[in-house]
Nucleic acid binder design. Structure first.
Lengths: 189, 189
DNA sequence: TAAAAAGATTGACAATAGTCAATAAATCAT
DNA sequence: ATGATTTATTGACTATTGTCAATCTTTTTA
């Protein structure tokens, strides 16, 4: 099993040899180039991605060409265009690799097989889901209660690496502001 | 079993008599008055609520007295101050009954007992969680991609009942705008 | 390394939304 | 019903953020 995945399971679940083989057969490795599109808007998100190395972004596009970053997925985290993946319907969001990345990917069907076949796997997934949901609740809170500057300050405190690693434009999208506004915030504070 | 809860389980899970008794012993009924506080900020959210009749709101308060509605929970939906409930830590949000309401409530511990004891219960919870998470992702999208007027129009299309039922102030909080702005949007469109 | 491309900053102005205050309307309780 | 309280609307002004354009900087690539 991939060591990064192994580490992810540590303390949460212990697998028999057969179970480990099943897990291995479900997760497919994938390498991406910087900028590579993993899912186009309008297609169904067939895979859940685990980022071993690199960074993905899930983003929205409008007809006028503007873009909005819905989520960023860093090392040792799972992510995908979630509504599309769960409901297996066309995605409104696209997924792009922000850096040359190393991924493990699993289909919805295989994910369900693991939940059925491996006792404790669904519990692990459910608990992961709870944490993702909590993170998204906290993002909603910051969007409705804070102004742009406060949101930026919090991001700097909680995810300083993110700011160094990604272009301004992406961070601005993620915060729900224009890149010019972000640029001005940075000089002000 | 309460018919509203029964209906909720329909098509998702079938219970034996013993299982049904276990479920019944876990869900406690509660009646609330309009305006009643079910959880104060700073306390741990011990219960997940199922709204049989009425409406709850989960809201944030700041020191200056301003309030923000994080979530609204209507008939036949589950909800609570989720981060606090899952992690059993003090809540930043409070919960209030917006109308005289009829609720069923279950503790985190009892919820876990049901997931352990009843095959399929955790799957049902996990799938419910997926849908809640999707709803929150869509709310994030609307907050970062749409302006106040667009958000209000969508709310009017998707939840017209909500607008008639709740005071302006609450809807404004929920949309992340001031009540004056909401009042102006309503006359404009 | 130089040219080209992409990204970041800054200025000027416009648009959106917030705040404070006054008034009007609706709801509640006696 | 009626006075009291809460809620909603409107006006005037302010603050925040967005847009467009120009310039500067960094990164890529040939």
């Amino acid at each position: 099993m991939h060591p990064a995945l192994q580490q992810q399971l540590e303390g949460k679940i212990t697998l028999t040899t057969e179970q480990e083989q099943l897990v291995n057969s479900c997760y497919k490795p994938r390498l991406t180039k910087r900028g590579e599109i993993l899912l186009e808007k309008g297609n169904v998100a067939r895979y859940l991605f685990f980022v071993v190395k690199g960074c993905l972004r899930v983003f929205l596009t409008k007809d006028d060409g503007s873009e909005w970053t819905r989520f960023l997925i860093f090392e040792n985290h799972f992510g995908t265009a979630f509504p599309s993946f769960v409901q297996q319907k066309p995605s409104v969001a696209a997924i792009q690799s922000m850096e040359a990345s190393e991924l493990l990917m699993i289909s919805r069907q295989d994910s369900q097989i693991l939940m059925q076949e491996i006792p404790g796997w669904e519990t692990m997934m459910r608990m992961g889901l709870e944490l993702d949901y909590i993170a998204s609740i906290e993002r909603i809170e910051s969007l409705i209660t804070l102004d742009a500057k406060e949101r930026y300050n919090i991001l700097m405190q909680t995810q300083p690496g993110l700011i160094q690693r990604l272009p301004n434009k992406i961070i601005a999208d993620y915060l729900g502001i224009s890149q010019e506004t972000l640029s001005r915030l940075k000089s002000k504070k």
